[in-house]
Amino acid sequence: MLLNIRVLRSIALLAVAVTRLFAAENVAREAVERVRPVLVQLRYVASEQQALAKSTVVATGVIVQPEQGLILTSTYGLVPDPPLAITVLDATGQTQAAKLLGVDHHRQLVLLSCATPFPPTAGVSFANAREVRPGQATIAVGCVFELDQPTISTGIVSAVNRLGGIAMQTDAAVSPTNYGGPLLGSRGEVLGILTPLSPENDMRAAVEWYDSGIGFAVPAEQFLPRISQLQAGKNIHAAQWPLKMAKGSPLSTPAVITEPAELQGLGIGDEIIGIGGRRVSSQWQLHAALGAYDAGQSVPIAVRRKTGGEESLMLELTDAETKPATE
């Protein structure tokens, strides 16, 4: 019996030793190692007129398509005034110029392209956004100082499906130091691309939030399907709701149309009760559901007619600039 206890104790001690050995490895560093091949350091040479405080902006980018030389980064330093020149330093030490292909203003992402393809970057993978859980570890990565020594900030996933579902939220420090860089999970998988998002998508407000414990990353499900559109030079904007609705607290007021008199088959007095398959009972819910859509997208709408009866129809969403004039 005495012997047994000794054996047990040594087994326990061994267990402690083994876990400590594992603990000596650093999850964040390991994760960053996995994405190093896709990290690029971007330099934007600004025109003199540009309203930025700095004449050069250094930012982080992620190679999303090595064969075609495609890089995804955030709008930070690129919007509203595009720079005079963009240079890209990649993990192999090559520097080349890049072109701005398209801007996703809705997600604050920009697609850049380089003439020379990048080496293959197998081994980097994206997380399935549906499996991301609040509380799970996050590692935000940027490389504005040294490409070969990325900066790391860590935190947790604060929430998923933010801003209409286009982004997840983290409390890791997110700032110009890592905008455009990847947000990683503890296994080195890319959870999303860090961008300066905010509810009203007011770029200034968003940048002011840096390091506040509220950072956003756009997951692959959101940006991959839009790469071909950006590659074709088509910019993306957030959808705006084209109709005026009954006054009152958005929390409790139903989405009853008051203007214009007629638009795409909708009229005054009609109530929107569903959008994109989601039931909505208030203007608050309507706007929350709308947050997922881009201008130009058509979305199925469920409507309760003023005259009674429910119908479904497709509504084409517009952005602020192309919004139809209302009387």
Binding site: N4, R9, I11, A12, L14, V16, T19, A23
Partner: peptide, 22 residues
């Protein structure tokens, strides 16, 4: 019995090292 005791101790050991994760 022996099995259960081992489990217990191993768990204790693991817990001790988890505590350091705090």
């Amino acid at each position: 019995m022996w099995c259960r005791a081992t489990m217990l101790l191993v768990v204790c050991g693991l817990l001790a090292s988890f505590a350091q994760a705090q």
